[in-house]
Amino acid sequence: MPDPRIKNEDQYEALRDKGYSKQKAARIANTPNAGEKGGKAQPYEEWTKNELYQQAKKVGIEGRSKMNKEQLIKSLRSN
């Protein structure tokens, strides 16, 4: 039975099949527009620090309030 907390169950299962942890797969599958393609998003370097902070908050990165812009970018890319 599908987990009601997972917004995109197909994406979650595909990520789990690739070896992602349950937590990371759930974070990605629950991020709005995470599965969309098209390359319309700006690179993180063009985001403001506040935009990066808000994205880090959405995906549950701990310690984000003490990070500078470069650290937020690195953390977002590694999650």
Rank of each mutant, 00 (worst) to 15 (best):
G38R: 06
K22L: 05
S21R: 08
E46V: 02
K18G: 03
W47C: 06
E13M: 14
A26T: 05
A56M: 03
Q23Y: 09
I28C: 02
K18M: 13
S21K: 07
I28K: 02
G19I: 02
R5H: 09
R5Y: 04
K7C: 03
P4M: 00
N30E: 07
S65G: 14
N8I: 03
L52N: 01
K66M: 13
P4W: 00
K18L: 14
Y12G: 00
G63Q: 05
Q54H: 13
N33T: 08
K40F: 12
L52T: 01
E51K: 15
K69Y: 07
Q55F: 09
L72Q: 01
L15Y: 00
A14H: 11
P43V: 10
K49S: 09
E46S: 15
L52D: 00
G60A: 10
N33K: 15
S75C: 05
Q42V: 14
K7I: 02
T48R: 11
K40E: 12
L72P: 01
E62T: 02
N33L: 15
Q55Y: 11
S65P: 04
R77L: 13
V59D: 01
D17C: 12
G19L: 06
V59R: 03
M67R: 09
G19Y: 01
A41S: 13
D17F: 07
K37M: 13
P32I: 02
P43L: 09
R27H: 13
N33M: 14
A25H: 03
Y20Q: 05
E62V: 02
S78R: 15
P43A: 11
K22A: 12
L52P: 00
Q55L: 12
Y20V: 01
N8A: 14
K57E: 10
N68T: 11
T48D: 12
L15A: 04
R27V: 15
N8T: 06
Q54G: 07
I73H: 05
Q71V: 01
N50E: 15
E51N: 13
A14I: 11
Y53K: 12
M67Y: 09
D17M: 15
I61T: 11
P32Q: 11
K7E: 05
N50W: 06
K7M: 07
D17T: 14
K24Q: 11
G63M: 08
A56E: 00
K69W: 03
E70V: 09
S65N: 15
A25P: 02
Q55W: 06
Q54E: 14
Y12V: 00
Q42K: 15
R27E: 14
A29F: 03
W47K: 08
E46P: 04
K40H: 14
E36M: 09
G63F: 08
D10N: 14
E51V: 04
A14S: 15
S75G: 05
N8M: 08
K7S: 10
K57W: 05
K22P: 04
A56V: 08
E45N: 08
G38Q: 06
Q11C: 08
G19N: 06
N50P: 02
K37V: 04
Q23K: 13
I73G: 03
A26W: 01
P43D: 03
E45C: 04
V59E: 02
R64H: 09
R16H: 05
P2Q: 10
Y53V: 04
Y12H: 07
K22I: 02
P32Y: 05
Y44R: 07
W47Q: 09
D17V: 10
Y44V: 03
Y12E: 00
W47D: 04
E13F: 11
K40T: 12
S21M: 05
K40W: 08
K22W: 07
D10G: 11
G60E: 09
Q11A: 10
L72S: 02
